[in-house]
Amino acid sequence: MPSAPRTLWTVGWFGLLVILQYSLRPMLGWRVQADFLVIALLVIAIRSRPAIAAFCGFVLGVVTDSLVPGAFGAGALAMASVGFAASWLKSVFFTENIALNAIFVLAGKWVFDIIYLLAEHRLGGIDLVAQLFWWSPLSAALTAAVGVGVLLVSSPPVSGHRR
């Protein structure tokens, strides 16, 4: 059972990342942007069990989907899936390697985009292909760069085996 201060620390970082999603991202206005919500979910996922991570992902996805009524539920599905998978993978293997952490975040963001784009049924054809294999990987790479920094700052390196 995680200690209360550690939980508060995690929740604080989660809140900060959510705020950055709705403040820094629109302020920058870049075509390729980091997804702070995915990073926030991963921060939760690496410190909790898969079920809790999936639940947190689901709630986070439902709340953010309220701004996209046409694809309501796609984000919840993607977030829940990524949260569960991230927590499960984190419990399977241990890594203190920054590069592996970056791949972890990159994969998380890319998988999120894949699930989300396929679930919302908005894009098709060449647009979907371009988004999946060009813009999403770029966004995932930027998210990974930011996410590694956040993971390093927000907690000690990822421990392999949870006690």
Binding site: V18, S23, M27, L67, F72
Partner: peptide
């Protein structure tokens, strides 16, 4: 979705509006 927008998401949307 409307209920979420007017409650939980309202401050975040306001934040996004100010940022833009």
């Amino acid at each position: 979705a409307g209920g979420l927008r007017t409650t939980v998401m309202a401050p975040l949307v306001s934040l996004q509006e100010r940022a833009e």
